[in-house]
């Protein structure tokens, strides 16, 4: 998203261009318009906008994209920190 930015250099998004077949699904599904296909390969335009939703990695047919998806919910993260509260959820 162009108007809103959170922290930089934190996203777990990793992209291997050698594996890319240029299908363009990553570019289609990304809600922050991070990918674009140029000359038959996807290119990462704006890595810092990644919110780790995981849509690109799930739909990539060749496993060229890896991201650790998750829910950016503070209460859920705190529950994850507490050893006695595993597997709970919020929202």
């Amino acid at each position: 998203m162009k108007t809103f930015r959170h922290l930089e250099n934190v996203a777990t998004l990793a992209y291997d261009q050698d594996k890319c077949v240029g299908c363009g699904l990553c570019a289609a599904v990304c809600p922050h318009r991070i990918f674009a296909v140029e000359d038959g390969k996807a290119r990462v335009l704006d890595r810092e906008a990644c919110m780790e939703c995981g849509a690109c990695a799930l739909n990539c047919p060749t496993g060229a994209i890896e991201v650790t998806p998750g829910v950016g919910c503070a209460q859920l993260i705190i529950q994850g920190w507490l050893p006695w509260k595993k597997g709970t959820s919020c929202c």
């Binding site: 934190v10 922050h32 919110m51 950016g72 993260i77």
Partner: peptide, 24 residues
């Protein structure tokens, strides 16, 4: 405000966790 990250469509879990480690 920190908790509101869960309601926005642009904060990543990695970013939220980093912010939490610093501010909690």
């Amino acid at each position: 405000a920190l908790n509101f990250t869960g309601s926005t469509p642009y904060t990543s879990p990695s970013g939220v966790e980093k912010e939490m480690r610093r501010f909690i």
